[in-house]
Amino acid sequence: MNSRLSAITLNTFREAVRDRVLYNLIIFVLLLVASAPLFGQISIGLERLILVNVGLSSISVFGILIGIFIGIGLVSKEIEKKTLYTILSRPVRRWEFIVGKYFGLVLTLVVNAILMSVGFYVALLISEHKLTGADGHLLIAIYFAVLEFLMITAVTLLFSSFSTPIFSAIFAFALFVIGTFATDLRNFAAAAHGMTKWFATAAAYAVPNFASLNVIGQVAHDQPLGGSLIVMNTLYALLYSAAVTAGAVLIFERRNLK
């Protein structure tokens, strides 16, 4: 990574860490995870299951919310504060600014995921009194949550590159909801005919497929997950994120900042 890119990345990370919304959400997640054993006591025999479901879902959903809330201001805030002009007046290219912002937010989310995972495993240890091999299996779901963060960051950055923060948040959140039902959309496309089939297929590939990355149900029940799924999902998240980030670069390069 060149020095300009790494400088923007680290600066974005530092700014995000200073953001109060970030801390509030982390505390909320930790509280939720810590209270999970209490839910388990209400549901006899399901303590571990509920803890795993609540913990992993929290890591995924709150990571995505953090990604959206911070991502929407990445470009617009710099324009609003006029700091963007200072940055771009230096030998920093526009694509470096976008890609650096992307890496900075991804770094923030990965650090968050690590913190949340530590909290989750501590809660699991308190609840179960020991960690087993099956608990290690849960890391796959956390890894897939990180892949979701790569995608939602790219999507939010794309909207942030041309829209206002509030609309960016609405668009990104709507895509997240649609993406969780992407498999249903694909099934619908498979059953449809004619033009509807073409539109539905195009929409199914265009939206980020978060359903493919959600394996919480399987790991909670200790169902095996093939290595090919991990490889294919990794490839998918990386390629989709790269495509959307390239789209953000294209828009930002052509944007009139005067």
Binding site: W95, L235, A243, A246, G247
Partner: peptide, 22 residues
């Protein structure tokens, strides 16, 4: 950027099909 968008998006379609099959 336009080339990367096209290539990566096409690649993501194949990867998603692979993930669905897996």
């Amino acid at each position: 950027a336009a080339g990367a968008l096209a290539v990566c998006f096409a690649g993501s379609i194949f990867a998603l099909d692979g993930a669905t099959a897996a």
